[in-house]
Design a protein around this nucleic acid. Structure first.
Lengths: 194, 194
RNA sequence: CGACACCCCCUAGC
DNA sequence: GCTAGGGGGTGTCG
């Protein structure tokens, strides 16, 4: 069974601490391509989660995936079985408040069930090249255009190498955004261009 | 008959678990004003009760009132007829101890008899905007001035909007603190100032 | 024993 | 600021 190792990271501005901020995420496949995207109104934790979701989405079901993240929020949720408890107790935290970001947790849970996932905590900014790259891409993906009318628009870029990136938006007409499918499309398109 | 919907909440510090503590309460009228106040030596349950009492006091007799509270202590007292039993058995709990806070229960009972009251239990901290506002105001109303000589002094503020508040103390000379009366006084005073 | 609140700490990571 | 885990306690009732 194929193994995928993915470094994920999220980033979010935090200017005056008031309300939702613009943020970005990235998922870097070891010895492979990288995905990144941004949202104009989100939180740091939602971006960490989004990075993982996109990573999982782009691996085939039943594959073996190693998710490397510096977010204790995400890693502990699975390694310390928080999510098992939430599913049993109606999504309440230990202090009886509703769990935040339930929508994204459910999405992650579904993807995680269909795969064999290992959750690995890494220290942030510790010189690991993949983690650094994820960090760089996530920050770069934060939307800077404050005049953007579409507040919920997401962008996804495919990095073939660190310098060579392709905006996937042009391939989004293929309803299912699976990395393999997109890669095929990209290759076909490139061949036609040559 | 007019309907009033009011979210009530109480808050109380609990520093070293020793004796009575400062606390606050709030009553938020849906699509209306909000009242809040504090006491320097009280309990959490007395604050929950005080919030309800002030809510009822500020609705006209014979009106239809919906009280929303996260306190099972208060809601069950009426919905599970605890108070009926207490009135019949000389205010003794099921474990034969005297019922606590009888003074406030009597006050609530009197106000409740003069109105048609529905008691509705809500979950604390569950994202309801009115419940959240009551919580915020109750916490904000906790007296912080520890050098206050008058330990029993109560303060009552009228919030016209979340940001705009009027201290009602200056209107307390009108013996009965009814919201409508006070509002009239406030308006008269404001008109004179202009 | 159960329930609902009200708190005080501590920890972890972004 | 965003989020979670864990421990301790009182106020009160059935």
């Amino acid at each position: 069974m194929s193994l995928f190792e993915v470094y994920t990271d999220g980033a979010c501005t935090n200017n005056q601490g008031e309300g939702l901020q613009p943020g970005g995420w990235a998922a870097v496949f070891v010895d492979g391509p990288a995905l990144s995207g941004g949202e104009s109104a989100t939180t740091n934790n939602r971006m960490e989660m989004r990075a993982v979701i996109e990573a999982l989405k782009n691996t085939p079901p039943h594959s073996h995936v190693r998710i490397y993240s510096d977010s204790a929020y995400v890693i502990n949720c699975f390694n310390q079985k928080w999510i098992d408890k939430w599913e049993k107790n109606g999504w309440m935290t230990s202090s009886k408040k509703p769990v935040e970001n339930k929508d994204l947790w459910l999405e992650m849970r579904q993807l995680e069930k269909e795969r064999q996932v290992e959750w690995i905590k890494v220290k942030g900014h510790s010189g690991n090249q993949w983690n650094e790259m994820a960090d760089t891409l996530a920050v770069a993906a934060i939307p800077k255009d404050k005049n953007n009318d579409d507040q919920s628009r997401k962008e996804i870029c495919l990095y073939l190498t660190q310098d060579e990136k392709i905006n996937l938006l042009s391939f989004l007409d293929c309803n299912q955004l699976n990395l393999n499918d997109v890669l095929k499309n990209v290759l076909v398109k490139l061949q036609k261009l040559e």
